[in-house]
Amino acid sequence: MIVRIDSLTFRYPNGTTALDGVSFSVEAGERVAILGANGAGKSTLARHLVGIERPASGTIEIDGRRTDGLGIAELARTVGFVFQNPDDQLHAASVVKEVGFGPRNLRFPPARRTELVESALRRTGLTELRDTHPHHLSLGERKRVALASVLAMDTPVVVLDEPTTGQDHASVVLLGNLVDDLATDGRTVLAITHDMDFCAEHFDRVIVLENGGISWDGPVAHWLAQVADMAGQTLELPQMTRLGRRLGWAGPVSTVAGFLERLASEADPAPVPSTAP
């Protein structure tokens, strides 16, 4: 277990409970989407993983170590956190220096550092912009710089806070591929997101937060099957899930590929029960 959270409870200074007895574990290489309405406690939960918030009660274990005594900078070796607003962190005079900031802090040897920085730039499509001042980039590009600067720290866990917000199409495609690649490399990805299509296409598991507690935890497909019949107001289901439902199909589809496969099986001459609306 790379992440293990047990009965995590957290209150704001004003006494409101933000998280109430949250427990879950994540294995290495899992892609977990954290969903929930605004104010459900998603960001607060994520901030605990990097030690910015400290639980009122309960424990957090990352890579076998309790996080209680560890500072944010120490936790940075295991958990990389990509914040929502890149402008809260970009300070260096060039993209390559910005991306090198984390590896330098973590005191990787120079050769390893170069390797990590180059690989992060390549994976985020920033190689050509390496000498540009981050201030001269568009918001989408700055978000990619922030992402690269965390990737370069080579942490076993990567946490993304609303990665697709404000991103154009090309960046979202790149981001999706990146999430898949990280998981293939055995790194764990946790992402807070509102983007249900992104979630359906690139994640294995969803954790849904509601009023500070977990209301669902399990495989994406099971969750979609469970909620497909409810008129979701706060969470918009993936486009293909809604289409499948309108066609009266039993069981959810969530991606274009899944939908076409299902459609092709309908075209199969084998007897198909009439399911048209």
């Binding site: 309405a37 605004n38 609303e162 917000t165 404000g166 509102h194 979701g232 107001q233 706060t234 969470l235 918009e236």
Partner: peptide, 8 residues
């Protein structure tokens, strides 16, 4: 509406 959920 970039930071709003479906209800917002």
């Amino acid at each position: 509406t970039s930071q709003l959920d479906a209800a917002g």
